[in-house]
Each structure stands twice: as structure tokens, then as C-alpha cells.
């Protein structure tokens, strides 16, 4: 089986980007494989729409390719830069679509006959429920919660991405968590928490 992409490389993003700027095609492949899924998943979490997230991810990666020759190593992390660009593209889209509801197309994968199906389905249901609840959060709260609790970034990095203070990020994540808990709390039984009352 031909594997079109190979992500076994542990070279830092910044070094790969420098190699890419020098015309190394293997660096382009490694970066594509490593970063595109991350950018797409992040865009999807912010937008809740697969088609729009794909467009955003493609545009963000295109901007990275264009930026590569002028990238100054040590100035910023590639991932931080990409999170910021992706979030800005998502915000632009949502503002353009202001007034309309964002369709949620979190279609669960079809269940298979392997052991642990129920657990996996429950996890997928929870992921889908979280996505729905995230879509109802205000833009900044959603971005902060996703970066902190799903992407696993530290508050100072989130602050750099969002152009906010660390205190503002803490406040946004606290309020976001509270709103998520309230929204998900109404679906406890459905999501396998029937005994937790």
C-alpha cells in the first residue's frame, strides 16, 4: 500500500518550514500531514461545519506556504501562528454569516462490530454533544475553551493567539466551562450519565 504522507518525522515545525522554504518537497509533505489535520480539527471545532472548516484549513495552510520564505525562526511558533490565522478566518466567516445559524454536521462514524462499540459510540456521542454545546457559546469563550481544554495549550500561549491578557483568557475559559456544564447537564441520561444525579 502506498502511503502518500509520512508523519514519522520528529523535526520541529519551524525547521521543517525552513526546509520547505528552501524547496525540500519532503518537508512540504511532512508539514501537510502534521498540520492540516490539526488546523482542520480546530476550524471544525470553531465553526461546527465540515465544508467551511475545510475551506478555512486550506486557506490557512496556503497562507503558511506563502509565509514560509519570510518566516523568521525564533519569532513565533508555527502552531501558534496557525491557530491565530485559523481563528481569524473562522471569525471572518461567522461574521459574514451573521444572523444565520451554523449547521452542525457532526455525523458519527458508522458503528462497527468490534468489542467496545458501546463505549466508542458513547465517546462519539459525547464528542458530538460537546461540539453542539460549543457552537452555542459566544465566539471568544468557544475559542478559549477549545484552545485550553481540547488543544491543551497553556494560558499564556492562548493569550498570544487571541491577543488578550492571561486574566482575560482565564475569565473566558471559566465562563465557557460553566456554560458548557449547564448545556450538557440537560443531556445527562442521553449521554450515559443516568446514575449521576
Amino acid at each position: 500500500m502506498v502511503m502518500p504522507f509520512d508523519d514519522s518525522d520528529t523535526t520541529p515545525d519551524e525547521a521543517l518550514l525552513a526546509d520547505f522554504a528552501r524547496g525540500d518537497p519532503s518537508a512540504a509533505r511532512a508539514l501537510t500531514l502534521r498540520l492540516t489535520p490539526r488546523v482542520f480539527a480546530h476550524a471544525y471545532r470553531l465553526l461546527g461545519n465540515r465544508a467551511e472548516a475545510e475551506e478555512v484549513a486550506q486557506e490557512a495552510m496556503l497562507r503558511l506556504w506563502r509565509q514560509a520564505p519570510d518566516w523568521r525562526e525564533g519569532e513565533a511558533k508555527v502552531s501558534t501562528w496557525l491557530y491565530r490565522v485559523t481563528a481569524n478566518l473562522c471569525i471572518d466567516r461567522r461574521r459574514r454569516a451573521k444572523g444565520g445559524t451554523v449547521p452542525l454536521d457532526a455525523v458519527p462514524e458508522p458503528p462497527d462490530a468490534q468489542p467496545g462499540v458501546a463505549e466508542r459510540m458513547q465517546a462519539r456521542d459525547r464528542a458530538a454533544a460537546l461540539q453542539a454545546a460549543l457552537s452555542d457559546l459566544p465566539e471568544r469563550q468557544r475559542q478559549a475553551v477549545v484552545l485550553r481544554h481540547i488543544e491543551g495549550l497553556a494560558n499564556p500561549e492562548i493569550a498570544a493567539i487571541m491577543g488578550a491578557s492571561v486574566e482575560a483568557v482565564e475569565s473566558l475559559t471559566t465562563r465557557g466551562r460553566r456554560a458548557l456544564a449547564a448545556a450538557l447537564g440537560t443531556r445527562k441520561e442521553e449521554l450515559g450519565y443516568a446514575d449521576e444525579r
Binding site: A28, R29, T32, Q58, M61, R124
Partner: peptide, 26 residues
Amino acid sequence: TFFEAARAHPAAPSPALMTAVLRAAE
């Protein structure tokens, strides 16, 4: 538990997107 589920089941990009990004790089 919800965040963990979201991390375990990220939305995956389509092969078309991966190909388009790689083509743009090349």
C-alpha cells in the same frame, strides 16, 4: 470526559483537502 472524547475523536480532514494542501505546497 467530554473534552477527552473530543480529543479522541477529532474531525478528520478529507483526502481531497490533504491533496489540495500538498499541491499548493508543491
